[in-house]
Design a protein around this nucleic acid. Sequence first.
DNA 1: TAGTTGATCGTCT
DNA 2: GACGATCAACTAA
Length: 196
Amino acid sequence: MKKLPRSFYLRPTITVARDLLGKTLYRRIGKKLLRGIIVEVEAYLGEKDPASHAYRGRTKRNEAMFKKGGHLYVYFTYGMHFCANVVTEDEGIGHAVLLRAIEPIEGIHIMERNRKMEDRIRRVQAALTNGPAKLCQALGIAREENGTDLLGHEIFIAGGKTVPRSQIGISPRIGIRNATEKKWRFYLRGSNFVSR
DNA sequence: TAGTTGATCGTCT
DNA sequence: GACGATCAACTAA
């Protein structure tokens, strides 16, 4: 499976968000390779978007959002969680796509360990990665991964199944308080691994 | 099943 | 000093 080229990420953010559905997200940790299908994302359009971290321009925190498309923006929130975004469009433009959920494919045992589920009561497999912070924990993505180039070898995205238009669901984003909320959340219809 | 709350801290006001 | 692109545990019914 071939890595998506830089040009994939340099396109309009909404387009990239939709096209990321069905693609395969890879995470290499040492010799171990984790893998999952992207099933849910949200677009954040920087200066045009009051809900975006980049709405008020560049700060130390959102610096990575302004990198060239194809980098990773990881932020820390609620005092305990990390969330990962795929940076889109050209350098200097603060747009990104939040990865909200994946369907685990490979390295599931390692994901369970990362999520510290070992000694817990058996859970549905979806609980492993069906939320932006869960996904990061399962894949071992944290502060150090902020700014990672997705054309590198640690974290990257490659082609997956092609998703027919009819399989893509659209809805308002989750956890946004702004009244001007747009329908910028995209997910795979019928997937059991989408967040609630 | 729905609704509420505690955890916990970096960032921006 | 307030609060958040969240989650899990808890309560009530």
